[in-house]
């Protein structure tokens, strides 16, 4: 349909190669701190882009991503830890069989994390999508908390509050950015397909979506399950980046951060989710100084840990009041748009 399709495909390939080249440069020349931030950005991109699919595109205000990230993190960690490591970690109760003896390669553990989280999302979807709006938000909030509580209490699977330690640091920039690119690519394609259009239709008018024959229940399930899949993978990558996980990592706070990201970027826009993940992670690092003591010359302010989150909350409130559509609204980046801006010719429709 688009006369510039070939050029745009070429630009996409070149753009991807450029990102990978930068990843390579950062990997070989960056400091450990910089690499860490870049990894965080990639993981948050995966989480935000997939969260946006259900919240922004399909318009179902889920508050459960922390459940899927947690499940993904635990699944993949339990699969990569060796039996010996598990035996050392599980001091209160031994790890149950067969988890106690299984060890898989990293990539297998990530795919498994995605599948298990997708399965949870699918099962959760049955009760969740009997509700709408505020009720759906509350039900998913409840589920998110349930998963955390379960993680806290199933000693022989998750090692309870002690969590899992000594997870191998498998997550390199290649892994994280590789998956980020794949996630963006697949989710963007999905959104542009007629299934994605049907999901948008549900957001704009559910009754009308039913009238054009869309099985709204099923399409919500598809969006939710897909979202759960990528969040599970993101969780697995996260676990193998920070190497220590415990239930406290996956509280509502994580959901809240993702919410800030997608609202800031513009609910419904994948581009926005990517930008939001960048700004949030980068900004979060930059704002670290507010947590530390500050010398204003005439007086010294003691450091208040958590001050950053106060600022983020204020930013969220500000966005909700003054810029509810976020940076991108529901628009998406496109090569046609960029080339138009740069004045590079190209045929218009």
């Amino acid at each position: 349909m688009d006369p510039n399709a070939n050029r745009n495909a070429l630009l996409s390939v070149l753009g991807t190669m450029l990102v990978l080249a930068m990843v390579h440069l950062a990997g070989s020349h960056g400091t450990e701190y910089q690499i860490r931030i870049l990894n965080n950005i990639a993981i948050f991109i995966i989480l935000a882009v997939s969260y946006n699919l259900i919240n922004g595109v399909t318009g179902q205000f889920s508050l459960a991503p922390n459940a899927f990230v947690a499940l993904g993190a635990y699944t993949s960690s339990l699969l990569t830890l060796t039996p010996a490591e598990k035996e050392i970690s599980f001091i209160i109760e031994p790890c149950i069989w067969p988890l106690s003896v299984i060890t898989t390669p990293f990539i297998v553990s990530l795919v498994a994390a995605g599948l298990v989280s997708a399965l949870l999302a699918f099962a959760m979807g049955f009760p969740v999508f009997r509700t709408r709006g505020d009720y759906l938000a509350i039900v998913t909030l409840g589920f998110g908390e349930v998963v955390r509580v379960i993680a806290n209490n199933t000693q022989s699977i998750t090692n309870g509050p002690l969590g899992l330690k000594g997870i191998a640091e498998h997550t390199t920039l290649w892994w994280s950015w590789g998956f980020a690119i794949v996630t963006i690519f697949l989710v963007a394609r999905l959104i542009r397909s007629s299934y994605g259009m049907a999901m948008k239709a549900i957001k704009y008018d559910e009754a009308a979506a039913e009238a054009v024959g869309i099985n709204t229940y099923w399409h919500k399930m598809l969006a939710f399950t897909t979202s759960g899949f990528f969040q599970g993978i993101g969780g697995g990558l996260l676990a193998h980046l920070i190497t220590t996980i415990s239930p406290t990592l996956f509280t509502f706070f994580l959901t809240f951060n993702l919410l800030i990201i997608i609202v800031m970027g513009g609910l419904g826009s994948t581009t926005g989710a990517v930008l939001g993940a960048f700004l949030f992670t980068w900004g979060g690092e930059w704002l670290r100084f507010v947590d530390e003591p500050m010398d204003l010359g005439f007086t010294e302010i003691p450091g208040i840990p958590g001050m950053r989150m106060v600022i983020f909350s204020c930013i969220l409130i500000f966005i909700m009041i003054f810029a509810r559509h976020g940076i991108m609204r529901t628009r998406e980046f496109s090569w046609n748009w960029l080339c138009g801006k740069l004045g590079i010719g190209g045929r218009l429709r």
């Binding site: 007629s194 299934y195 259009m197 239709a201 008018d205 009308a208 054009v212 099985n215």
Partner: peptide
Amino acid sequence: FSELSVIENVMIGFHC
């Protein structure tokens, strides 16, 4: 579907 284009509104009808 308010934010979608005219042609998208019709295309959705074929999805089912």
